Amino acid sequence: MAYNEFLSDRIVQYFKEKHVVFYEKKMFGGLCFMIDDKMCVGVNRDEIMARINPDIYEDSLLKKGCKKMNFTGRPMKGFVFLTEEATDLDEDLHYWLQLALDYNPLAKASKKKTSK
């Protein structure tokens, strides 16, 4: 797995401090944190992926270390990558994690794949 375990440990610590019920799932070559069966945040290499409210997406891209999440050549509105510049300090990491937690109840869950 190609993800920064120190970053994932920091996320786990924050979620536990906030009494967030979550589980981890290996996805996209990294580790995703699922809340209410929805992708909330993830770690891919040395970056954090966060699912935030699309209404604050454009403004969030103006913040240091925040960039569009672009796996396929098409950025997904509401999903951002956060570099070390955006998450190095606990205060900054907590800001982004809380944005993702705040949006999670509003986010739509992915459709479950059914087996044939």
Rank of each mutant, 00 (worst) to 15 (best):
E5N: 04
E5K: 09
L7T: 11
L7S: 01
S8C: 07
Q13W: 12
Q13I: 12
Y14Q: 05
E17D: 12
E17M: 13
H19P: 07
H19F: 06
V21S: 13
E24W: 04
K25D: 00
K26E: 15
K26F: 15
M27G: 01
M27E: 13
M27T: 09
M27W: 07
L31W: 01
C32D: 06
F33N: 06
M34H: 09
D36L: 02
D36N: 14
D37K: 08
C40R: 03
V43W: 05
R45Y: 04
R45C: 04
A50K: 04
A50S: 04
N53P: 14
Y57N: 00
E58L: 09
D59N: 04
K63W: 05
C66R: 02
K68Q: 15
K68Y: 00
N70M: 03
N70W: 00
G73R: 02
M76Q: 06
M76K: 03
K77P: 07
K77Y: 04
G78P: 03
F79E: 00
F79I: 06
V80T: 02
L82T: 00
T83P: 10
T83Q: 12
T83W: 13
E84H: 05
E85V: 11
T87H: 03
T87W: 01
T87I: 14
D88L: 11
D88V: 07
L89W: 09
D90N: 14
D90Q: 12
E91M: 12
E91Y: 09
D92H: 07
H94Y: 07
Y95F: 15
A100I: 15
A100G: 13
L101C: 12
L101V: 13
D102L: 13
D102S: 10
Y103D: 11
Y103R: 04
N104T: 02
P105M: 08
L106P: 05
A107I: 00
A107V: 09
K108L: 11
K108C: 07
S110W: 02
K111T: 14
K112R: 15
K112H: 11
K112S: 14
K112I: 10
K112W: 02
K112E: 15
T114G: 15
K116I: 10
K116Q: 09
